[in-house]
């Protein structure tokens, strides 16, 4: 498997560590009244789509960037790779 790193180009999957669903980027507001329920959902509930799926990968044997990799779970085709930091900054 090859991940096309936005800064470093195509890199072998063995350089990366996988964490899981990119929804983990969206940490709920701890001050919210519904924080307990929000964090429960954030921590434990995942979709299991047949098709496009965004996941977090860490370039541990590389530049230590966290990436958001969008993969088709039916074909393993990688559609899109972005720096997680870039996406997080746009959001905030």
């Amino acid at each position: 498997m090859i991940i096309n790193h936005p800064l470093l180009g195509p890199r072998d999957a063995s350089e990366f560590v996988h964490m899981g669903d990119a929804s983990l980027m969206h940490r709920p507001d701890p001050k919210s009244e519904t924080a307990a329920d929000d964090f429960y959902r954030y921590q434990y509930l995942r979709d299991n789509p047949a098709g496009l799926y965004a996941e977090l990968w860490f370039h541990e044997q590389g530049d230590r960037s966290w990436l958001v990799v969008t993969r088709n779970t039916l074909t393993h085709e990688i559609i899109d790779v972005q720096l997680a930091r870039h996406i997080a900054r746009q959001k905030s």
Binding site: V17, M19, L24, M25, R27, L56, F58, E60, R64, S65, W66, L83, A84, R85, A88, R89, S92
Partner: peptide
Amino acid sequence: RHMEFCRQVLFPE
């Protein structure tokens, strides 16, 4: 790895 996740993804500001 966890601290980099917190830095880059959760608290990028």
